[in-house]
Design a protein around this nucleic acid. Structure first.
Lengths: 364, 364
DNA sequence: ATGAAAGCGCTAACAG
DNA sequence: CTGTTAGCGCTTTCAT
């Protein structure tokens, strides 16, 4: 269907019925296909005239090289794959944005597979990308040594995000959860809050474990006499609410609370408000992540901020190095992305940084 | 580098040095490559034995067909492209999620190009996808008839999102902005607010225009005596704040305010709070989009909600129909996605739906 | 039911 | 500097 004679070659024909191939260009430019290829790939060894003729023919025919044919022979796809879990809106979009921007700047395309909740899901995603990408960026709690062994096409470069895996073949970039949490706890202590409680994340979660580590380290270092006070949470707003009530029920109420993420901090805030406890006057509160709502709750939430887009950008950079065979040159296989303490109203230190307009307007 | 003899064919060799090809499978199964192809593509015309031999060989060799070679000959990539602007976090992730899930279910991959702010940017994205995708989903304020004419490879199916373009070749799916806005204004009127003002979006914005249309329609129909009251906005929180102050400065303060999006409503809310005006007691307030913060501001914001993931899912469905050559069968080229009025505290009707936990927990 | 062979559009030797 | 030619791995006639 749609057919049309393949012979409509009237000079300067614009309305090419079928996609032009390298042969058409060669004929049009009156040179060999080899020369066309040379010009297109900037290999040199062609006179300016030939070059010109080819370029003109290409333009006249609206020729675009077939990427499949090219891939078939070169073995490269100029595409990188991103395998991501069911990430929270902001993280997801920022991460993709960071990766995509950096990739485009290098002429790479981005193949995305998102929303993987299970190991099998993630494994399938990784496997179906085989042959379609030159490298992968993987963020998944299910990815460990075994997983990689079983699902990764041995020679495919990959960068892991936020992963505990420590394998020279698969370098990873992690948030500096430990330092971030430590800095926040130190900050709370510094501004005079004598005791700091910690609302933990889900038991098996890597970020949660690291943040807890940071809490412990800071307490050990800066308030060694003060007993640790850790309550359980699940990273959800609701679990934060429960943790808040639990904290309030303790014989001695802590002076400050550091939640392992912002959603729990928000839940916790509700619990405090409900109980008539003022924040930060009666109790200080801080979270982690700096999600958008952190600025909009009342009081605005102090938190630890991370540039997710930067994480994506750096992951792509590292991946391209890997793809170029340089290997993860110099330094350890595991790199770390710094976090910043953002002091807003809820911690009782500053009170200004309430509303920022960092985010672009909604478009839909 | 990495080399290794291509002859390590010891029976049952697992550690294939190079990727196995269809020839290897044929040899291993002692059949012709044609038979292997037939089995792999389920074309029938093969005995059970042949089939079995092939399957075993495939498994033994960990054979995976080369997608580039396949594309070269079939002309299909089993990949669809998504071209998106610099969308707000939630919209972006929900949209991708909706598209990706539906695509995966059909064995399609998703090539994403995001963050396009200019026409040239979007054009480049569309052009570089040529040949790499079987169809496209495009959301961009820059896409109009001309754009498509100039950048779309004539035979590539595409569906447009949230676009005013009305071209049978490029069906589109739009949010039902008009009906949504109309329903919200009617709701405000219904619950007793005598006058409703409207904070508009950016002048050239399609959504904004449609929402204004809805406001006008509702006022005309349900409060024909009440004068229209429209103030300018830019979809940003800050412009909402300014609009709020402008509204307060009017000789007669409106009883209710409907902002064309939630971010402006939030800004407006700050203006009201600052002026000591109570919401909803002194003035009712409503937005559009149902972004996450809408639930978390105080009072929680009444708004119009849209299932963005559903938009993505439906876009992919429509696209696959197009790709299968069915064309956008039956119905107009432009379809519409319904919106729901979500009454929370700020409009003064209900006061419960404050905190929902619809969103998954943050993972990073 | 099976195999041999002809390309898909391109790159990369290898000749001239 | 340019052209000829041999495949890349696969699907698909066309014979058998």
């Amino acid at each position: 269907m749609r057919g049309g004679t393949p012979l409509c070659r009237a000079l300067g024909d614009d309305v090419s019925t079928k996609k032009a191939t390298i042969k058409d260009v060669a004929r049009e430019a009156k040179v060999s296909i080899a020369s066309v290829s040379r010009v297109l790939n900037g290999l040199g060894g062609v006179t300016a005239e030939t070059q010109d003729a080819v370029r003109k023919a290409v333009a006249r025919l609206h020729y675009v090289p077939d990427s499949a044919a090219r891939s078939l022979i070169t073995g490269r796809t100029h595409t990188i794959g991103a395998v991501l879990p069911d990430l929270y809106g902001e993280f997801f979009s920022e991460l993709i944005r960071g990766i995509d921007l950096a990739a485009r700047a290098r002429g790479l395309h981005l193949l995305v597979s998102s929303s993987h909740d299970g190991v099998e899901d993630a494994a399938a995603a990784v496997r179906t990308m085989r042959g379609r990408v030159d490298g992968m960026i993987i963020l998944s709690q299910f990815v460990d040594g075994d997983f990689l062994e079983q699902n990764m096409p041995a020679d495919l470069p990959a960068v892991l995000l936020d992963s505990p895996v420590d394998d020279p073949r698969y370098p990873s970039i992690n948030l500096d959860n430990v330092a971030g949490a430590q800095a926040m706890v130190k900050h709370l202590l510094d501004i005079g809050h004598a005791s700091v409680a910690f609302i933990n994340g889900p038991a098996g979660n890597f970020d949660a474990q690291e943040r807890e580590k940071g809490y412990r380290a800071a307490m050990r270092q800066f308030a060694p006499k003060v007993p640790l006070n850790i309550v359980a949470g699940e990273f959800t707003e609701e679990s934060g609410y429960r943790a808040g009530r639990e904290l309030l029920a303790q014989p001695v109420r802590p002076r400050a609370v550091f939640a392992a993420n912002d959603m729990m901090a928000v839940g916790c805030l509700y619990a405090f408000k409900e109980a008539g406890i003022r924040v930060p006057e009666d109790i200080a509160l801080a979270g982690f992540d700096d999600i958008l709502i952190a600025r909009y709750v009342t009081p605005s939430l102090s938190t630890v901020s991370v540039s997710i887009a930067d994480l994506g950008r750096r992951a792509l950079l590292l991946l391209t190095e890997l793809m170029e065979g340089k290997g993860p040159i110099g330094g350890p296989h595991t790199r770390t992305l710094p976090c910043d303490v953002v002091a807003r109203e809820s911690c009782g230190a500053k009170g200004t940084n309430n509303v920022a307009s960092k985010h672009p307007p909604a478009l839909v």
